[in-house]
Each structure stands twice: as structure tokens, then as C-alpha cells.
Design a protein around this nucleic acid. Structure first.
Length: 963
RNA sequence: GCGGGGGUAGCCAAGUCAGGUCAAAGGCGCCAGAUUUAGGGUCUGGUCCCGAAGGGGUUCGCAGGUUCGAAUCCUGUCCCCCGCACCA
């Protein structure tokens, strides 16, 4: 038994020695594809294996099609997670360290080195047995490794610097404020990945309505500023400690907890002091200038926004229930010093009208749900329902001055903006759900970051360019187009700088780093010259150099003299870029469509308007036995483990043949093992095919003609599939279906010499069809077969139209059907060992009638009566009319159900059923394991037919008798 | 909520755009038989239900409709998954 792993090593070395995949510009048409470089925060596992095998298969296929293929690779070091991982090592986080040591083989003594993020990243990029570089080599990828780089290389940083100078000069870098999730202890913005709790929690914007009393401001937080017209009172929680604070030029009253938030969010908070709430007081509502009382309510949460809330009982279930409760309990009111008469008169004010609800939606819903008091948890649900309906379907009532008739969704923004403009409101951000906790176990807050730099994707001119680029691109699968279009429209300012992590300093403000998605938008252009840059001192890489290489601007001789880079080198880089660019296909995960992939379009549209990428292929995700893979938890299958166990080709073919690239893949061990056995079977089949000496080309009979015809079909489908990136479909035909057909052929073939010849001939094509998927095995068999050169460089098989033989295929499917029918009968009758099987083929007149019927069915009009007459006259038959009509009814029904393609073949091909069955009699006998198979014409007077079955014979459906 | 994708036999997954070869490819699993018979490998057959003659019945989330004919087209409905940003 062959060891696949030995073949892997042998051929990987051979490819390296031959420098087979190092790409140089030449006369051939080029094909340039890239796949998102890995973010090296952990080992390469089978999920990545899927992502990177797709482009490799395509690269190998295109090479065989005669393209000069560039398939490069690099590593992404920029960003927080690698820094975070190093920090976890520094803290010796037990779970994390255990995974590193026990699962990923890091020596305990080495741990201090892993506190350095650069070391950490390098380890998983290239050094470790579990690294991406090694994993990709073990899988036999046809990558041009000369162009490898990392995003923290000085050369690359120069490239990013050039890019951001261009963006800055184009006015697309803007400065602004931005709310972020912020960990006060880490002193950093935190991403969802950094959270212990609260993943996916959003940041929502509350409007603070400034209620005034004396010279105090009570900023009531609301998501619904438009309801200010329906305010009946203000709520404060009697159990909460409120403070007064100088905010800007005003004195605000807020909960104690709110002070820190205001500070984080950029408010100038001065002196803070205690304050006693006087519930008898009246306050003035902003905008309407109505005076309303302050009332006590326990549901008011001091942790949410300011702890001050306006009351709109008509449209807020909480407010309605709380007010109702107070009105029932005058004694409680008195305890807070409130005169119950002030409360008695408070009536809900309806200001929004919604179809399907009455005057006050909040009251409707509370009544319907049977909510009795303000601690009822159902209130959340009630609030959501009212809000949702009012927002989606509600309109402001006509009496609401200025906003009357407006949809709520619009009025909300209009009211907010008007109030902000008139200093009657402010803004505060809050989490949509709590708690949100950092991995360092500290509660996360919302911070408004000042001085943040943004890439202005909101710029309409830029958007238009991006749309233009997108319109010319081929998207795989095509359904992703809508997502891209939507993203382009919806994308606005993207914060492109960070204050921590590895990466490139922002050229205009070096205390910031270019954020990791923003430094990876056009690196595909960098690959074209990466190998040449390595020999150049990065200090020499000025903007002029890149301007020349990428835009052809300036004079090479001049730039050479100012930078000291040889003119020839500059010109070579320019040539390489012009040869390879534009990129033909970009491949990445479909979850990156909303950011990375769309950024990539934006930046190309701006910087390389004439060389926009030609296409994008988006991948699905991969899971492990139905579970999400997680490197940091160690529940993955690393590439080296998989390859050691199954061999590279098994892993590759498995990853490519279960689902198409854009579908989600589930790695299932039992299926991988089955794949390994399938490949082993294939290998030994191939070996036994190669072994016997080649025979001279014998004459081909029906089985050979069929086999060759099927082979053409598989070539055709596999080719079309790979052109469309359908690796699964291609693999199905190139491997499984071909295997299937070959099995049938070996059973069918009668002449040993022809079979030997045919198997070799099929194998020669088969190996080439499989080479992109299972290159190691194929190289080895190719060599054993005496193929010339590497199969990786051999030409892709072409369909030989002359070998397509639909008639031969029809005959085989006919035989298949006959076997199936007999088999069915045997099964139903439970006859285990039949002595004899007799087949009776339809007599000539039936065939003639069949042909006439076929013609009429082909024409679409079938009048059974007319057909009956026509046939009777044409054939001059003297038959029982009922026999004929029964036959015709059945025939017409069958013909109608036939696909037009098969009908056509039947019409144009003469099939001599008797001849076909006689020739195949031996085969049928073998297949059915019977002693004797006899074939007769149905009207053969000398036939053996004790039960008079022959009369049931129909063209293409012989009658059967078994005994 | 906004945007995108999807529901096919025990599981995965083709088929849906261009209706008929569809009781529905292929793989996995399972069952049976064969084998120099190791319960492993390989090969062969089977795998919705009924049937002692190639047949019949009921299926492609659910409910209707169009059609000679629907997994495929139309309408309605239920359910599931993904993204929604400072993050790879």
C-alpha cells in the first residue's frame, strides 16, 4: 500500500527544485489571483485549508489551461488580536497558555518570547509546525513564495504610507468624534472579540431633553424625542442618589452613575455636589414649554443614561403603568410631598396615530397583556411592541405643530435636530444591552473618541467610482452583488486609525497607526513587486518610486538618481505591475463583504481606476463536526495533523468535493476517512491499469465508444465547473462520476485488449482532470505512466467532439434499464436463482408505429384517434384496434415524458434492439447470475415463450420472461 | 429593524434560473450477499410505503393556485442561518 505522505514530500520537493510556481512575466496570457492573507494569531487549521485550497485548485487549473499564473501569499500582522494574545501570554492566562503548550506544542520555557506580539505572529506565520507557511507547503500549494511578506515589514509600511498620502491628498481622510466601546482599565477601545460578556451589544444614541426648573437642567434620556409633545410629567427614582453638576455652562441634575459617562463622552463636567430632589416641583418641558410635575418612579434605572426620564403615558407602557399606579395611591404620593390633586388631572396625551391601535397604543398593549404594575417583566415586551409599530407605521397627529402628518421615523430625526439646534437637547450614548464586560473583567463604557481619523467612504464621488468598478466585476456567487451594492451605499466614515497594535503609522499623524482592515485594501498590487523590493533598502522607497511603478508617473532615470535605486530595477517593477495588474480574481470570506472586500473595491477605484479587479469569489465558513472552530480554545484540526493522518490529497479533495466554495463546510472525520479509502482505491486501480504492457490500439466496440463518450462529458462538465469556481461539481465529475462510469465499463468490456488500452487512455485524461485537486498522487502516477514533465504543467484535457457518441450512450442506458427491470422482477418475485431469462424485443410494426408517434409527439399535437388511423393506414395493419390503441396510449405517454434531447437521438439513431441485446447477452447473464439469457424478436414464431409475454414488448422496452 | 442567504429522503448535498429523462445524481451512514469468510479491506446489490412480473401509492418546510404535467412557475404563510462597523 502506498504511503501518500511520502508522495507528498517527494513531489513538493520536486516542485521546489524546479521552481515550478515562481511566476515571471512572459508571452503567455496571465492569470492573477489572490486570497485574503491569513491573520496569524493561531495555527492553520482545516477551515483555513478550505479557504486556501480553492485558489490553489483554480491556480493549478489555469496553469494547465496555458495561463501564466501568479498565486502569492503573505501574512497579516496588523491589529489587536495578536497583541491581545501576547498579552494573555504575559498574564499567563491559564486556559490560553494551556492550549499553547499542550495543544500547539509551545515549550513552557519559550513562553516569555510569546509575550512579544511580533514573535507570536512570526511563530504562527512561518516557524511552527502548525504555521501557515508549513501548512500551505504540506498541502502542496502552488504559491510563488518569493513574494512572501508581512504587513509590518518596512517595505510594506512604505507602500501603505504612499497609499495614505494619496488618500490624504484626495481629501478622503477626515477627522471626527466617534463613540466606541471602551475599557477604562485597558485604556483602549475594545472589539467584540475582546469581550467577556456583551458580544454583539450595540451602541444606541439617546437624546437628552433638557427640562428646566429654576436654573437647573434635568436632562431626560429618550430614544423617542418626537414624543416630547405628549409629556405629562418627569420621572425620578426616589431610591436613587442624584447629584448636581456643572456641565458646560449649565447645572445638570443626573444620577450619580451618569457623571462618569458624561465625562467619557466629551462633556465638560465641573464641580459635582449632592442634591435633594423636591418632588413637588414643576419643570418646564423643552420645545412645548409646558410645566409638568416631577413624580417618583421605581422603574427608573440610574445606570441607564442619566437616570432622568420623561413620561409619555400614551405611547410608553412603563409611563402609563407607573402613572396609573400613583393615581391609585394618593398616600404614597403624599409621602414624597406630592399633592395627589396634581396627579389626578394628568391625562395621557396621544400624539401618534397607528393603524391597528386605538387612541393610545401603550394603554392598548398594557391592557391586552394584563400588566398590573411597573415591576412586571412583560413591560419590556410591551414597550418593544409599541415602539416597533409606532416607528414603522405611525404618523404624528395633525395637532402636533410643524410635525403633524409626518411618519414617526422622520419626525423623530426632525424633532431631535431641531431641539439640538435650539440647545433644548443633547446626546448621550448607551449600550443597547448590559452588562458589557472586557476580558480583563472590567465593565466597558461608551467613550467618545476625539481626534479619530476616518476614511470618508461617505464621499459620494468615491462611492460612484466604487459602483462603477463593481458594475464591471464578475461576482461569484452572483447573489453577492446585492450585498456589495448595499454596502457601498450604506458605508460611511470608517475609523482608520488606532492607538495600539502593530502596523504602519499614519503618515499625517504618526501617533496613530493605520488600522488593520485599512492597511489591507490594495496589497494585491504590492505582490507584483514584492520580490524585487526585498533587495532594496526601504529608506529609498519614496512616494515617487511608487508613483512611477503604479502610475507610470515621473522619469525612471531621475527617480533612480534621487533614490539610488537602479533605473533597471524601477523599470522592471513597472513592467511586472503592468503585466500582472489588474488582478483577475480576489477570494475571501463572504463575511468580509461588508468591509474588507468593499474597501478593496473603493481603494482600487480610486488608486487604480483603469486596473480595477475583474472578479471576487466569496467563501462560506467552515465548521468542525458541526461546531465552530476556535484556535484560542484549541478545538481545531491543524493542517499538519490532518495531512499526517490522511495525506495532502485526501484533505484537498475532501475540502473541495463536499460543498461549493461559497457554501458552509462541515469537516466530518468519517467522511474524510472514506475519502482516503476512495483515493487509495483510485490509486490501486491506476496502478493496475499502468502495470500491463500497452496493447496496440484494438478496434473499439460499443462499450469503448460509450466510455470515450462519457469521458468527453466529464471533461466538459469539469472544465465548465472550474471556469465557474465550482470545485465541488468539478470534483464530482472528475472523480466520483468518472469512477462510476469506469466501473460500468470494466463490467461491460468484452475484449481484454481493448479494455487494457481503454483504461490507459482514460487514465491519461483522468489524471490530468484530477491534478488540480490531488496533485501529488497525480504527479506520481503520471511519472509512472511515462507522462512528460510535471503533470502540474501538462495541458488540461480538451473535449474531442468526434468521440461524443450519443447513440452509444443511449444503448448503454437502454441496457441499464433492461437490467433494472429484470432486477426489479427478481426482487418482487423473490426468485433468487433464475434458470433462464428471455427477452423479447418489439416487432417491426411496433417500431414503425413508434416512429410515427414520436414524430407527432415531437410536433406537439397528439390526437390519439388520428394517430391510430394514420398508423393503421401507413402500415396496412390488420390488428385488433384495441391492441393498437392500448399500445399507442402507453407509447405516447412515455414519449411525452422523454426529454427533447433523448427524443432527438432516438429519432436520428437506428437502434437494433435485437442486435444490442444479443451482443450484450453474456454481460446480462453475468450481471444477473443466470445460466441462460435468450433474446427473441417478439413475433419470432420459433421463440420460446410459454406465457406469451412477447406481446407486451414495446420499443426500447423488451418483454421479459423469467423462470 | 436594515441587508443577504436558506428549508430536498437517516445525515451532507445536486436538481429550482430555461416545468416533463425526478421516487429525485453523488457522498456518508445503514442493511444484505460475494470474497483465500478477520465483525477490517474490496466487490455487488438494496436503502419512502405496498406488491410473487418490470406496477401502484405518498413525498422535496406548510397552505393554496397556474398547467395535460410542478421539487422546479405564481400567491400567501411558518421556520432557520449570516452581517450590521472601529473588528479579523
Amino acid at each position: 500500500m502506498v504511503k501518500f505522505q511520502e508522495l507528498d514530500a517527494k513531489w513538493q520537493q520536486a516542485w521546489r527544485d524546479a521552481k515550478l510556481f515562481e511566476a515571471e512575466p512572459d508571452k503567455r496570457p496571465k492569470f492573477y489571483l489572490t486570497v485574503a492573507y491569513p491573520y496569524v494569531s493561531g495555527p492553520m487549521h482545516v477551515g483555513h485549508g478550505r479557504t486556501y485550497t480553492v485558489p490553489d485548485v483554480i491556480a493549478r487549473y489555469k496553469r494547465m489551461r496555458g495561463f501564466n499564473v501568479l498565486f502569492p501569499m503573505a501574512y497579516h500582522f496588523t491589529g489587536i488580536p495578536i497583541v491581545g494574545a501576547a498579552k494573555r501570554v504575559a498574564r499567563r492566562e491559564p486556559g490560553f497558555v494551556r492550549v499553547l503548550i499542550e495543544r500547539y506544542g509551545v515549550a513552557e520555557s519559550e513562553l516569555p518570547k510569546f509575550e512579544d506580539p511580533h514573535h507570536f505572529a512570526s511563530h504562527f506565520a512561518r516557524k511552527s509546525e502548525l504555521s501557515y507557511r508549513k501548512g500551505m507547503e504540506w498541502l502542496g500549494y502552488s504559491i510563488d513564495w518569493c513574494r512572501e511578506f508581512t504587513t509590518v515589514d518596512h517595505h510594506y509600511q512604505k507602500f501603505v504610507t504612499w497609499q495614505y498620502h494619496k488618500l490624504y491628498d484626495a481629501g478622503l481622510i477626515v477627522k471626527g468624534k466617534h463613540p466606541v466601546k471602551w475599557c477604562p482599565r485597558c485604556g483602549n477601545p475594545v472589539t467584540d472579540h475582546d469581550l467577556l460578556e456583551g458580544e454583539g451589544v450595540g451602541i444606541v444614541e439617546f437624546t437628552l431633553l433638557k427640562y428646566r426648573a429654576d436654573d437647573y437642567v434635568l436632562p431626560a434620556a429618550t430614544l423617542r424625542p418626537e414624543t416630547v409633545f405628549g409629556v405629562t410629567n418627569l420621572w425620578l427614582n426616589p431610591d436613587v442618589k442624584y447629584v448636581s453638576a456643572r456641565v458646560g455652562g449649565e447645572r445638570w441634575i443626573v444620577s450619580e452613575q451618569a457623571i462618569e459617562k458624561l465625562r467619557e463622552q466629551g462633556y465638560q463636567v465641573g464641580e459635582v455636589g449632592p442634591i435633594q430632589i423636591n418632588f413637588s416641583k414643576k419643570v418646564e418641558v423643552p420645545l412645548t414649554h409646558k410645566r409638568v410635575p416631577i413624580l417618583p418612579a421605581k422603574f427608573v434605572d440610574p445606570d441607564n443614561a442619566t437616570g432622568v426620564v420623561g413620561s409619555v403615558p400614551s405611547h410608553a407602557p412603563y409611563d402609563h403603568v407607573a402613572l396609573f399606579e400613583l393615581q391609585q395611591r394618593p398616600d404614597a404620593l403624599r409621602a414624597y410631598g406630592v399633592n395627589p390633586r396634581d396627579v389626578e388631572g394628568l391625562k395621557p396625551i396621544s400624539l401618534i396615530e397607528v393603524e391597528g391601535f386605538g387612541e393610545s397604543p401603550a394603554i392598548d398593549v398594557v391592557d391586552r397583556m394584563g400588566i398590573k404594575n411597573q415591576t412586571d417583566p412583560k413591560l419590556e415586551e410591551a414597550t418593544a411592541e409599541v415602539y416597533r409599530n409606532e416607528f414603522a407605521k405611525g404618523r404624528m397627529r395633525e395637532w402636533v405643530s410643524k410635525y403633524g402628518g409626518m411618519p414617526v421615523s422622520r419626525a423623530k430625526l426632525a424633532v431631535r435636530d431641531d431641539m439640538l439646534a435650539g440647545n433644548e437637547a443633547a446626546t448621550i450614548y448607551e449600550f443597547s444591552a448590559k452588562p458589557v464586560v472586557c476580558r480583563c473583567n472590567t465593565p466597558v463604557t461608551v467613550k467618545v473618541v476625539e481626534d479619530q481619523w476616518f476614511l470618508n467612504y461617505a464621499d459620494e464621488g468615491w462611492k460612484e467610482k466604487a459602483r462603477g468598478c463593481l458594475a464591471r466585476m464578475d461576482l461569484v456567487p452572483p447573489e453577492t452583488r446585492g450585498q456589495f451594492e448595499h454596502t457601498i451605499s450604506w458605508l460611511h466614515e470608517w475609523p482608520c486609525t488606532r492607538n495600539i497594535g502593530m502596523g504602519t503609522p499614519a503618515p499625517w499623524d504618526p501617533k496613530w497607526m493605520i488600522e488593520s482592515l485599512s492597511d489591507s485594501t490594495i496589497y494585491m498590487a504590492y505582490y507584483t513587486i514584492a520580490h524585487i523590493l526585498k533587495a532594496i533598502d526601504p529608506a529609498k522607497l519614496t512616494d515617487e518610486v511608487f508613483d512611477y511603478v503604479f502610475h507610470g508617473k515621473g522619469d525612471a532615470a531621475l527617480i533612480s538618481s534621487t533614490t539610488g535605486i537602479p533605473q533597471e530595477t524601477l523599470e522592471q517593477m513597472r513592467r511586472e505591475f503592468e503585466y500582472w495588474y489588474p488582478l483577475d480574481y480576489r477570494m475571501s470570506a463572504n463575511e468580509l463583504i461588508p468591509n474588507h472586500l468593499t474597501f478593496h473595491i473603493f481603494h482600487h477605484a480610486l488608486l487604480f481606476p483603469d486596473r480595477c479587479p475583474r472578479g471576487i469569489v466569496s467563501f462560506g465558513i467552515a465548521v468542525l463536526e458541526g461546531e465552530k472552530m476556535s484556535s484560542s480554545k484549541g478545538n481545531i484540526i491543524a493542517i499538519n495533523e490532518a495531512v499526517r493522518k490522511y495525506g495532502a490529497d485526501t484533505v484537498r479533495l475532501y475540502l473541495m468535493s463536499t460543498v461549493e466554495p461559497w457554501q458552509d463546510l462541515d469537516w466530518q472525520t468519517n467522511e474524510v476517512e472514506a475519502m482516503q479509502r476512495n483515493l487509495e482505491r483510485f490509486y490501486s486501480l491506476a496502478e493496475s491499469t499502468i502495470a500491463p504492457p500497452s496493447a496496440k490500439r484494438p478496434s473499439f466496440a460499443q462499450p469503448e465508444r460509450w466510455m470515450l463518450s462519457r469521458l468527453q462529458e466529464h471533461i466538459r462538465v469539469a472544465t465548465e465547473a472550474l471556469d465557474a469556481f465550482e470545485t465541488r461539481k468539478a470534483a464530482q465529475h472528475a472523480f466520483f462520476q468518472l469512477m462510476h462510469d469506469l466501473r460500468w465499463y470494466t463490467k461491460r468490456a468484452r475484449q481484454p485488449k481493448a479494455r487494457t488500452h481503454m483504461l490507459k487512455r482514460v487514465l491519461e485524461v483522468w489524471l490530468r482532470l484530477l491534478a488540480p485537486f490531488t496533485p501529488h498522487i497525480c504527479e506520481n502516477l503520471w511519472e509512472r505512466m511515462g507522462g512528460s514533465g510535471f503533470i502540474s504543467a501538462a495541458p488540461w484535457p480538451k473535449v474531442e467532439e468526434g468521440l461524443v457518441d450519443k447513440g452509444a450512450e443511449l444503448i448503454e442506458s437502454y441496457l441499464g434499464r433492461v437490467l433494472e427491470d429484470v432486477g426489479k422482477i427478481l426482487r418482487v418475485t423473490k426468485v433468487k436463482k433464475p434458470k433462464r431469462v428471455c427477452l423479447y424485443v418489439a416487432q417491426d410494426w411496433k417500431w414503425k408505429a413508434y416512429h410515427i408517434a414520436m414524430k407527432r409527439v415531437g410536433e406537439g399535437k397528439v390526437d390519439l384517434g388520428a394517430l391510430l388511423r394514420e398508423i393503421g393506414e401507413t402500415l396496412g395493419l390488420r390488428l385488433h384496434k384495441s391492441d393498437l390503441s392500448k399500445f399507442l396510449q402507453q407509447t405516447v405517454k412515455e414519449l411525452r415524458g422523454m426529454p427533447s434531447e433523448e427524443l432527438e437521438i432516438l429519432e436520428t439513431t437506428e437502434i437494433d434492439e435485437l442486435q444490442v441485446l444479443l451482443e450484450a447477452a453474456d454481460f446480462i447473464r453475468e450481471q444477473l447470475n443466470v445460466k441462460e439469457v435468450r433474446v427473441f424478436k417478439a413475433d419470432d414464431a420459433a421463440r420460446y415463450d410459454p406465457q406469451d409475454r412477447a406481446r407486451l414488448a414495446v420499443p426500447m422496452r423488451p418483454a421479459i420472461f423469467i423462470e
